[in-house]
Design a protein around this nucleic acid. Structure first.
Lengths: 237, 237
DNA sequence: ATCAGTTATAGTCATAATGACTAAAAGATA
DNA sequence: TATCTTTTAGTCATTATGACTATAACTGAT
């Protein structure tokens, strides 16, 4: 495809159609104590050389979520991750190539799944992003908002931590996402009382100090927490 | 267009493209004490004669949200409503005509905006829906979930009530949406304490009994409530 | 005018949750 | 064994919540 070429499409009924649809995963992971986003360099026009979300064109017969996962694997080598739909960006001017809406996905995983040697993709701290292609900066900002919004009302963080983790690890993650410091003791009480996490029998040997107990998430699949708060009392009967 | 005709599209770069994209508003309003959804009868194949969301095809150069509003007005005569993106339904088999993703919108308004005489659209109780075209039953279910989820954590109900309202009106609405009965006194306390609503000087003369004070929403635009709950104590500094 | 009958508002109060601390436990090291 | 470090495990005053009870403001009938 030549530079500055606008792609168009007309359907068999004679009406203009979108030139294509893309699916773009916004992949988050804890990385060096911070929340990081996975970006891949663009290898083609437009925005060649700039960083972008590791997404791409949907194929016919493909669910958008499948596209997000497939493109993520193609561009970064990363396998199956947690995906939830974020939003669709459909402004007709968001892509210089033409009318190409994008379905964005919130994706969560661990930083370790990326083999940096075998991929051109890289982690970037969520608050220090490079120049991004298309409207991807906006999409990432919306992804961060979603993640923050669900953090304390779901066990969404389950996908960002190993199966067993210490309270310090969990607290660092929550602090990295929300950009707020929590009081250690109350942090544990809140998560335990909301039945988001549960202690196990295991402890982890630290380098120094008392060994930390290992915790696990109560449910395995991310879901909204059952605890209702701020909702007024109901009537019996 | 003939029945059972599949529409296809190929873009100018030679790749298959979606045949079209639609935008579908899920319009809610309080109606006869219940939560109701606005539906319009389909006048064309496929699903001719069945009830469907009042949406339709996006034009090029159009934002999806504009499409949702335009189609709503075309099909029901209703003017500007509150719109927020709900989700995109992109399964390649969701529309028998071909590859046609739909961007669904949550729309909120008052039942009175529909002039029933001048439109074929109708309100249906959200828990008594007729057979629906496409995957619209699923879309509406997701819309109800979204509305319930935000009910107590935002002032989203502002768009469903008149500018000034009584506590009983507000409570009936909250009960209709959440399908839960609330204790009167605690209901008021919760909404006032969360600074979602605020009392005014006015009172409304009822048919019988003590007149009810009129309330208003604190902010005018729907937004997430500032009150943080279940989030553990932070550290000072 | 007074007295029910209604519908709203305005408390009360025991219990639970929250925010801010303090104490103690369990390891490594001097 | 003393000391330093990192975690866990309380304590406690304050606030929020759930479930009631009391009072206020109106209408209509005696």
């Amino acid at each position: 495809m030549k530079e500055d070429t606008v792609i168009t499409a007309v359907n068999s009924a004679g009406y203009p159609a979108p030139a294509a649809i893309t699916a773009d995963p916004v992949v988050f992971a804890p990385w060096e104590g911070r929340l990081a986003v996975l970006l891949a360099p663009r290898r083609e026009t437009p925005y060649e050389g700039q960083w972008a979300l590791p997404g791409g064109f949907m194929n016919p017969e493909e669910e958008p979520e499948e596209t997000a996962q497939r493109k993520l694997t193609e561009k970064t080598g990363i396998g199956s991750v947690y995906l939830e739909q974020l939003a669709t960006y459909g402004s007709p001017r968001r892509d210089p190539r033409g009318w190409i809406p994008s379905v964005a996905y919130l994706a969560l995983t661990h930083a370790a799944v990326l083999r940096e040697k075998e991929s051109e993709a890289r982690w970037f701290p969520a608050d220090q992003l490079p120049d991004l292609a298309f409207d991807h900066a906006r999409i990432i900002a919306d992804g961060i908002d979603r993640l923050r919004g669900k953090l304390w009302y779901s066990n969404i963080a389950v996908t960002l931590l190993p199966r067993r983790f210490t309270l310090v690890e969990a607290r660092r993650l929550y602090e990295a996402i929300s950009d707020v410091r929590y009081e250690v003791s109350n942090f544990r009480r809140t998560l335990e009382q909301a039945e988001i996490i549960r202690p196990t029998e295991e402890v982890q040997q630290g380098l120094t100090g008392r060994p930390a107990r290992l915790y696990e998430f109560v449910e395995q699949q991310p879901s909204w927490s059952s605890r209702r708060s701020r909702i007024p009392g109901t009537l019996r009967d």
